[in-house]
């Protein structure tokens, strides 16, 4: 294909996207579109399955049976969401094996929030409320993204996730209605998870180079800073309602803007965690690698058995 042909294909492609048409796997797409989508969708998938670990850490210690089944079902949903997202990425011509390999060798990224430890039961509440709350803001916007399989995965994920944030908030609300010790536990969790949650929206707009392109492809519908502001505006009243204090002395309502003003994120910490120096980066990756490594013989056994069965079936038919 020569350059002129590519250009005209790309024009048609861009017009389709501008007209809110969905792009489907077999459609022509610019190589950059394919690569960007593989990167973003797989990052999203990796975040789901790495995200199972900090919460999974508390399944065996959940304080009541009701909490235990809710948490277990939530962590299981995350496995499902990882699965939907890997499947969406696979439609772009890459295998799940390759994607997992990129996760395991550290070339692929996942959301840094999961590199923070879950130290108390209240952390499970904080993750559900804040981390899922932040994720939902991103994901709801992505329902209208241009790539069909990604958009469809988002529809399913958003529907299933609707209980996740409530589950977390309810945990914290119950703690805040409990003893002093429980209230302190809840406040401590918010103190540790607040800033990392704000970091989930990524760098400031003026330092986020991909935004324009991603906006055009509807991989992003709102900028990092817009989403972050919406999250703060939504979350602060929820905290106040149950008596939690946001750990930010600069936080105050700005009547003129109609938004909360809030303090500066510690961008140095942000960069450190992204670069692998967060409190749990190594443990998280090693847990994923170990699961995959320990599962190798199982996956191989199933393939070997399937091959034997297929042989036997064809032999039976031949006789």
């Amino acid at each position: 294909m020569n350059e002129a042909q590519t250009t005209s294909l790309e024009e048609v492609f861009n017009r389709r996207i501008d007209a809110e048409e969905k792009i489907e796997p077999k459609d022509w797409m610019p190589e950059k579109y394919r690569k960007t989508h593989i990167r973003q969708i797989s990052q999203h998938a990796h975040s789901e399955i790495v995200g199972m670990l900090p919460e999974g850490n508390w399944i065996s210690r959940a304080p009541t049976l009701r909490r235990k089944v809710a948490l277990l079902a939530k962590v299981q949903d995350e496995a499902g969401h990882g699965l939907y997202l890997y499947s969406a990425a696979e439609t772009l011509g890459i295998s799940r094996d390759e994607l997992l390999d990129q996760l395991h060798d550290g070339t692929a990224k996942y959301s840094s929030i999961f590199n923070y430890p879950t130290l108390t039961w209240a952390d499970i509440g904080a993750i559900g409320w804040l981390v899922d709350g932040a994720a939902i803001m991103n994901q709801v916007a992505l329902i209208n993204t241009s790539y069909g399989p990604y958009s469809r995965a988002m529809v399913r994920i958003c529907k299933e996730e609707s209980f996740h944030q409530r589950q977390g908030y309810e945990i914290l609300m119950t703690l805040m209605k409990g003893t002093d010790e429980q209230r302190a536990m809840a406040q401590d969790a918010l103190d540790r998870w607040w800033w990392p949650s704000l970091m989930m929206f990524g760098p400031r707009d003026d330092e986020s180079p991909n935004t324009a392109q991603s906006m055009r492809w509807k991989l992003k519908r709102k900028s990092n800073d817009e989403l972050r502001q919406a999250f703060v505006d939504q979350t602060v009243p929820q905290a106040e309602l149950i008596g939690l204090r946001i750990p930010d002395p600069a936080l105050c309502w700005n009547e003129e803007r109609g938004h909360y003003d809030f303090g500066e994120i510690d961008w140095d910490e942000f960069r450190q965690v992204v670069q692998g120096n967060g409190p749990c980066n190594r443990e998280r990756l090693e847990a994923r690698r170990a699961a995959h490594r320990n599962g190798t013989w199982v996956r191989e056994a199933a393939l070997a058995h399937a091959a034997k069965q297929a042989d036997r079936d064809s032999l039976r038919k031949a006789i």
């Binding site: 399955i49 199972m52 670990l53 999974g56 399944i59 065996s60 049976l65 235990k68 089944v69 277990l72 079902a73 962590v75 299981q76 496995a79 499902g80 990882g82 699965l83 890997y86 847990a287 170990a290 699961a291 995959h292 320990n294 599962g295 190798t296 199982v298 996956r299």
Partner: peptide, 25 residues
């Protein structure tokens, strides 16, 4: 329940968790 997130792949992870949830029920 403790195995959730550590299975040989996502499909088996989800399946074993379903069994765990049935039993807890």
């Amino acid at each position: 329940g403790k195995l959730c997130g550590h299975g040989p792949n996502l499909e088996t992870d989800i399946a074993l968790t379903n069994i765990s949830l049935d039993l807890f029920g």
